[in-house]
C-alpha cells in the first residue's frame, strides 16, 4: 500500500457534479418561487426557468448514467456493510472523542460505505421521486382529464415539494460533512482539481504508472 495523489474525479465527473450543483440550486430557487414560498421572479418566468433547468439536468443525467455504466464507475456506489458500522459509530460517537476517521479511500472505493449508501439512496430513491412527480406534475393534463384522477394532482404536487425538501436536507448534510475528518477546503479541492490522496495497492500503482500516468501526480 502506498499513498499517492491520484486523479479520482476525472473531468466529466467534476463537470457533472458542478453543473448539477448549479442546476439543483436553480431548481430549488425557482421551485420555491413557483410554490409561493419566496417572491422574486414572476411566476411564469420562474416556471420557465424551473422547466428549463430540469430539462438540462435530465439531459445531464442521461450522459452521467451512460458515463457511469461505460466506465464502470457505478461500482463506487455498490452498497457494502464492510466498515459501515465503524463509520456510523464514528459520526455518532467517535468524532466527539477526537478519534480519527476510520475510512481510508481506495482507488475503486473513493467513498466511505455510509457515503456510498447515501449517494445510492439519493440516486435510486430521491432523484427518481423528484423526476417522476415532476414529470407527472408537468404533464397532468395527459392523465388529469378524468375527473376522479384529477384529485391526485395535489398529491403529486405535494410529494414533489416534499422530495425537493428532502434533497435540500441532503445538501445540508452533504456540505456539513465536508467539515468532518479534514478541512472544508481539503474536501472540496479534489472535486476541483480531480486529485485526492488515496491508498494504492502495488498493482494499482504499477498499472496507473504504466497505462494511465496522467492519473498520478
Amino acid at each position: 500500500m502506498t499513498e499517492r495523489k491520484v486523479k479520482i474525479y476525472p473531468r466529466f465527473e467534476r463537470f457533472w457534479h458542478w453543473t448539477q450543483v448549479a442546476l439543483i440550486f436553480t431548481l430549488m430557487a425557482s421551485g420555491l418561487r413557483v410554490s409561493g414560498l419566496i417572491g422574486g421572479l414572476p411566476f411564469g418566468a420562474a416556471f420557465m426557468l424551473h422547466i428549463g433547468a430540469a430539462t438540462a439536468l435530465m439531459v445531464l443525467w442521461v450522459f452521467a448514467i451512460f458515463w457511469h455504466l461505460t466506465t464502470g464507475t457505478w461500482r463506487h456506489y455498490v452498497p457494502t456493510t464492510k466498515g459501515l458500522g465503524k463509520v456510523a459509530r464514528f459520526y455518532a460517537y467517535g468524532i466527539f472523542r477526537g478519534e480519527h476517521h476510520p475510512y481510508r479511500k481506495a482507488y475503486w472505493r473513493k467513498h466511505n460505505p455510509l457515503q456510498a449508501l447515501t449517494y445510492l439512496a439519493l440516486k435510486v430513491a430521491l432523484f427518481p421521486a423528484i423526476w417522476i412527480t415532476g414529470l407527472m406534475y408537468l404533464t397532468y393534463n395527459l392523465w388529469g382529464a378524468i375527473p376522479e384522477v384529477a384529485v391526485w394532482l395535489p398529491v403529486v404536487a405535494n410529494l414533489h415539494s416534499l422530495t425537493a425538501f428532502a434533497i435540500a436536507a441532503f445538501i445540508v448534510a452533504h456540505v456539513y460533512l465536508l467539515t468532518v475528518g479534514g478541512s472544508f477546503r481539503a474536501h472540496v479541492r479534489p472535486m476541483i482539481t480531480g486529485f485526492d490522496t488515496v491508498d494504492l495497492t502495488t498493482e494499482e500503482e504499477a498499472y496507473l504508472a504504466s497505462d494511465e500516468p496522467g492519473r498520478l501526480r
Binding site: S35, G36, L37, A157, N158, S161, T163, F165, A166, A168
Partner: peptide
C-alpha cells in the same frame, strides 16, 4: 403557488 404551506411544503 396559491398554497405554499401545503402538507408537502410543511413536512418538507
Amino acid at each position: 403557488g396559491a398554497n405554499p404551506m401545503g402538507p408537502g411544503g410543511t413536512a418538507g
